[in-house]
Nucleic acid binder design. Structure first.
Lengths: 205, 205, 205, 205
DNA sequence: GCCTAACCGAGACGGTACGTCACGTCTTTTA
DNA sequence: TAAAAGACGTGACGTACCGTCTCGGTTAGGC
């Protein structure tokens, strides 16, 4: 996943070029602090600069502020899309939803993603960016999956596919958000998918 | 709705008692600032004190920090539970979900609630408090509604009622969160309820 | 030595009379703090109240402020006038000056008096009070001693006796002030007195 | 007279150097407040910063606290050493002592010096600094003067010159301190010098 | 032997200043 | 020209006292 281009705003090609290594060490610095359990609110630009061994101006040259930097960090940390089999719609839906459950846990992100997302949502500008680059693509992925099911006659075709996917995504996300500690029951995704699929079968002619 | 008791921590009954009027004017001060469109992040304790005509220490005497104060403000602002008819389960479900849609708009809260909730969610302690006093009671309300429906034979009885309500609540909340500007289609709640109810009818024997 | 009457300002005789025990415990509280080595500047009214187990208002009822309280404390601590033999003017002068040297040391006052006096001098009002009640009486005592010497023909009579005493007091005080640690040579008073007396003998006719 | 070096503590030569202009404007700010008659105790770091148009941190970067800043201000205000003729020891002594009398009056310092000195004396650390840089040099100047007189046979040579000068300095300072309002008789210095010189003539062999 | 004014402790109250920290900008030297 | 270092004005942080003001609860006169 590409960065939202911290190098934006660079005009000419003259003079000493910006160091990509510096770029990386700044983002690594933020992630290191997060892994150390430092609360997001306690991570100041000043502290990032100290951690990364970098001047403050070097950070401001790349990002207009803390939030924009955090968005890039979040994009780097965002786990890859799950692999879909393409054979069973039901199984693919379960995989998609399970990916949400595992996200809060897994590698280094634990409480982090939850935290960053809270930050992001408090800034409309950033929320829009996050929505456009992270959320919406995945939502469309699920909608596409269901649209395929509608064509195959697996799901009733008289409801908008995006709305349909929201019926699956919503309850899953609700549980993820309500219980950020990660203690979600393992079979939850299957339960939701199976219950809804049963109710969404095409009406017999 | 009771406050999370800013007066907590007061030990004995000796000395001059804390003024309830001051209590109110502090919370009013925060709300006034929010109505003026001041971003939540720009509301400092210092500014609240100035706005409310109150000393900083008077605020710190009641709340350990900004977040805890905001939680109390949020509780005060939280709209009352909607009135349920008690006759039609389907209509009552629509009313419950509609209440979510209207919440982000309406009177003075516009971008506020969304904002405060983001703050709240970034602090596990506060999130727990908010969850316990605001979210969970309403979720149980909906679950109780569905349990009634299960007894009446309106909904299939083989699924946990809380899980069942999450199937309604989740998609609604998903839309509310994704589109905080409030431009939600009016019929959304009805669409969700009717679609799901159709799928959740008790299986014919 | 009487206090500067902390009870002043009391109008009527009705109601519960002020407790003298409280009076004492406040002053004792200040002295206790000073003996514990707390710097004068770190002694707040609030702290005195805590130490003495007394309400703040009880202190303000007696003294208008910190400085006035300190003056009374100083008056209580001020050592008694030294005993003069009355036989030898030279010996009495030595005793008077020696009293200055010992003042900074002795019992509990060590760095204290020096400290309080610095405070006192920064407030004209208090300085005047201290000057009138402590300094001037002793200066007059010395002047009287020398006037006796002038009558006896021990000192030249053509100089004002107060001026004359300042010639003795000045150098002694200078040393005391310059070296507040108390490491003054023991024979200093004698050296000053003898040297000056030799120069101040009446001119032979 | 050099400052006690507000720039101390600066380690390397890297980074933006501290501005000397800022240095000056801070000290000017303090002096301006003093000239406006603001009592020393009412001069807070915050107020100095406002007056000088400077951030608080900029002051704390240079001085650890209020007292240290005041010492530097005092050193800047301290009048230059008086010019000595070098011909008449008696006249030079008078000039030295007269300088003390004029100090409390004169230009802008009025009640100021007296005030600052009181502050200084309440802090052993600062008192030591003031003693070393201001008082002692002048005391040695007077002692040197008298040592010259001892070599010329103008003063008895059997007393330590510093002790000797204290006999002149002490009474003068005593009067200055006792009457800080500045209403000292004009001929005082001459009176002291002439009286003492008469008594300190070398003994005829 | 009550009555009641004044005292007493405790601590809330609106303020001001403290000393620290981070903000985002700027000015240096070094590369 | 970039980069690190760090100074700069600004302003919030949370704490401590200031001097005043309630509280509930004594504690002595004076009636």
């Amino acid at each position: 996943m590409n960065l939202a281009d911290g190098l934006a705003g660079r005009s000419s090609t003259r003079g000493r070029p910006r160091s990509e290594a510096v770029e990386r060490s700044i983002i690594e610095g933020v992630m290191q602090l997060l892994e150390e359990g430092v609360p997001l609110a306690d991570i100041s630009i000043e502290r990032v600069a100290r951690t990364a061994g970098v001047g403050k101006a070097t950070i401001y040259r790349r990002w207009p502020g803390k939030e924009e930097l955090f968005v890039d960090v979040m994009l780097v940390m965002e786990p890859a899309d799950p692999e879909l089999s393409g054979t069973s719609m039901r199984d693919d839906l379960v995989v998609l939803l399970e990916a949400l459950r595992r996200r809060g846990l897994a590698n280094r992100s634990s409480a982090f993603l939850h935290n960053v997302q809270a930050q992001v949502k408090s800034s409309p500008k950033l929320w829009a960016a996050y929505h456009a680059t992270v959320i919406e693509p995945r939502r469309l992925l699920g909608a596409e999956l269901l649209r395929r099911g509608q064509r195959n006659g697996e799901v009733r075709p008289d409801i908008d596919a995006t709305m349909l996917y929201d019926l699956f995504l919503g309850p899953m996300l609700l549980r993820v958000v309500l219980r950020p500690e990660g203690d979600l029951p393992e079979g939850l995704a299957e339960l939701i998918v199976d219950t809804l699929l049963e109710g969404l079968r095409p009406v017999a002619p």
